[in-house]
């Protein structure tokens, strides 16, 4: 019988998916002048010590979703190295959602800490 991913691996993938959207908003928020996809991927890897590191290509469907939800805006910049690159900035709504999620994430971790047995 073929063995599928174990419980921890599945759980890690699920929780990472949710946190990734928040982490992307947090990174874009840090760059008021905007940041391109490659920059987001690199910062995600460096700032989370690889904990939220993803295959970089899988970041773009997430960025598209955040754009569709109108949490991110995009403008294009000419690039010498190839096609023009997109620069992502947080929208007003994105900023509001990010601040709301920050409180929520803080609350969740605080409550989870309280659940831990002594």
């Amino acid at each position: 019988m073929q063995k599928g991913p174990n419980f921890e691996d599945t759980w890690r993938i699920e929780i990472r998916r949710g946190l990734l959207q928040y982490a992307v908003l947090a990174i874009v928020k840090r760059h008021e002048e905007g940041i391109h996809g490659y920059g987001i991927a690199k910062e995600l890897e460096e700032r989370t010590d690889g904990l939220l590191q993803v295959k970089e290509g899988t970041l773009y469907p997430i960025l598209h979703r955040l754009r569709k939800e109108r949490l991110l805006n995009v403008h294009t910049e000419k690039s010498e190295s190839g096609p023009s690159k997109k620069v992502y900035v947080l929208t007003g709504e994105g900023d509001r959602v990010y601040r709301h999620l920050t409180v929520l994430v803080g609350d969740i971790f605080e409550k989870l800490e309280g659940l831990k047995s002594d």
């Binding site: 391109h36 190295s81 096609p83």
Partner: peptide
């Protein structure tokens, strides 16, 4: 949407290459 995504990927590759 796919065309847009492919453009993003292409731009990412060239940016990384540079």
């Amino acid at each position: 949407e796919t065309e847009d995504l492919l453009e993003d990927l292409k731009s990412h590759i060239y940016e990384g290459f540079k």
